[in-house]
Every structure is written in structure tokens, then in C-alpha cells.
């Protein structure tokens, strides 16, 4: 029983580490544009590094027919746009100050982060 308990606690530790503490590598936007795939419950890539003080274009390609995937919100910039299925949609973001800005679907199930440095 002791082993099972230890395994259980380890599992909890793994959940905390994997979902909260671990930061996946960010993708750096070059030449001001990047394509984000909206598919299977995730934005790919989901962590995007941008240069501060420069506008950036993010092109979304929605492959997921679920209505949850249909809207992308950049709450910090008051931007919300509908993403048509199987079509590119470009969103031009204004020049941003340094910091982390989240983007997500309406239900917060699709989540991504802009790292502006």
C-alpha cells in the first residue's frame, strides 16, 4: 500500500510539473509573421516569442470543426476574431510592450502565450 501511495503522490507531482511548472520552448516569430494551427484542442505553436515595439502578424489556420475552436481572443488588446474552418485568417497585433500576453478560445480550452521581449 505504501508503494501505491508513493506512486500516487509522485503522479500528483508529475501533474503539477508537467502542466504548470514546465514551460515548453517558444517559437520565435521571424519577419513579423507566423502560422498557428488550431487543431485537436491545441494551438501549435502555443508559445510565441515576439519582439517588443513591433507589430506582428499571426496567421491562424483552424482545422478543428468544434465550435470551441471558432473564436480566438487576445483579451489584453480587446481583439476577438472568428476563425473560419480550413482557411487562413491573419490577425495583425499592434506593437506591444514587453511582457506575457495570453490568447485563448472563448472557453479557455485552447490556450497560448505571446512572449514579448
Amino acid at each position: 500500500m505504501m508503494i501505491i501511495n508513493i506512486l500516487g503522490l509522485l503522479l500528483i507531482g508529475l501533474i503539477v510539473w508537467w502542466f504548470w511548472l514546465y514551460k515548453p520552448r517558444e517559437v520565435i516569430v521571424s519577419e513579423g509573421a507566423i502560422t498557428v494551427m488550431v487543431e485537436d484542442g491545441t494551438y501549435q505553436p502555443s508559445r510565441i516569442k515576439l519582439a517588443a515595439g513591433e507589430p506582428a502578424t499571426i496567421r491562424f489556420m483552424r482545422k478543428d470543426a468544434s465550435p470551441c475552436a471558432g473564436t480566438v481572443l487576445f483579451s489584453d488588446f480587446d481583439v476577438s476574431e472568428e476563425l473560419p474552418l480550413n482557411q487562413f485568417k491573419s490577425i495583425v497585433l499592434p506593437a506591444m510592450e514587453k511582457g506575457e500576453y495570453a490568447f485563448s478560445c472563448q472557453m479557455q480550452m485552447y490556450r497560448g502565450t505571446l512572449l514579448v521581449e
Binding site: 508537467w18 502542466f19 514546465y22 515548453p24 485537436d40 484542442g41 491545441t42 501549435q44
Partner: peptide, 19 residues
């Protein structure tokens, strides 16, 4: 299938959702 694929993709992306 969509739940399992979504769950796996989210997992590898260090996120978790309804799937």
C-alpha cells in the same frame, strides 16, 4: 477518437482540456 487525439496533443503541449 477526437477526445483521445485532443487529449494526447494537449498533453504533449503541456496543457490539458476537456478532452
Amino acid at each position: 477518437k477526437h477526445f483521445f487525439v485532443g487529449a494526447w496533443k494537449s498533453f504533449t503541449n503541456h496543457s490539458a482540456n476537456m478532452d
